[in-house]
Design a protein around this nucleic acid. Structure first.
Lengths: 144, 144
DNA sequence: ACATATTAGTTGCTTTTGTAACTAACAAGG
DNA sequence: CCTTGTTAGTTACAAAAGCAACTAATATGT
């Protein structure tokens, strides 16, 4: 077997990334899913509103690189669960501003802190340098 | 804003991992999808058989941490496309050995080399050390 | 030998995602 | 104004994934 043939699935970045993403997503999911009945996109929407303030669905799409149908459905579900409310923008009635309700804000605070804790748990496995390299590489790949 | 509040979605590992995984998967997908009409799990099955030799569906499940229904459906689809064939194991008729057909083997060779090339393309963005750290971290996260 | 448990793999049903077509509101050029 | 184009967001339909119940073959304890 030549050196070239020693290429394994575990050497293949798309595979590695998917496996790692799946593990962490599955683990963190239990927070927003079990406790608030949220889906991943719903949690992302709540995160954006809680972290950056009121904004429209399109802004969330742009910032989180999520497709608008996913956000549209997440918004609908969050509205039904009374975590967010919408307000049509009078100046341009195509837009609607999304904002967290009090219970949405409470969920955000809880999940935000859970996210920080979970992130720290994963990060604890690595040195500061490793963490920096890992995150920089991921951001670069994701950004491309 | 305190230091604690400076936690961003882009600082959250599950999010970063998902974004990075999505970008690379989407890019590499075009190979197996456009050229062979395969789905991701089908490509993984082909990879396993081509890289490690004949094995059963359960072995593929174990090695690739994939659920058996996904593999079952991938096997069915690959069989219909004549990329693999199954042989019931006489010693234990619950098992069936999967193996590539000649056209399956040809597809594997092509995709294997495309995978190596694509991986190198992503890796080229980083130094040798960065690559080593990235892959080691991902493997550790995925393994946990 | 026989009831019970396990293992391999499949199927049916539900949930989630992707894609494309659609509505409604606005913008811009003539 | 009025046609044409664009933008925000929704919806309908199809593809894919997840989960649980199922069949068939084998193993195990009594």
């Amino acid at each position: 077997m030549t050196e070239k043939d020693a290429f394994d699935l575990k050497d293949f970045l798309p595979y590695l990334l998917n496996q790692a993403a799946e593990v962490t997503s599955r683990e963190f999911q239990t927070y927003y899913r079990r406790r608030y009945g949220m889906l991943r996109t719903e949690w992302r929407v709540v995160f954006h509103l809680g972290r950056y303030g009121d904004m429209t669905a399109t802004e969330i799409c742009d910032r989180s690189m999520t497709h608008k149908t996913k956000v549209s459905r997440a918004v609908k579900a969050l509205e039904k669960k009374r975590f967010i409310k919408r307000t049509v923008v009078e100046a341009d009635k195509r837009n609607e501003t999304l904002s967290l309700t009090p219970s949405g804000r409470a969920a955000f605070r809880d999940l935000f802190s859970a996210a920080r804790t979970y992130d720290a748990t994963v990060a604890r496995q690595f040195s500061a340098e490793e963490n920096a390299v890992l995150r920089a590489c991921l951001a670069k790949i994701a950004g491309a």
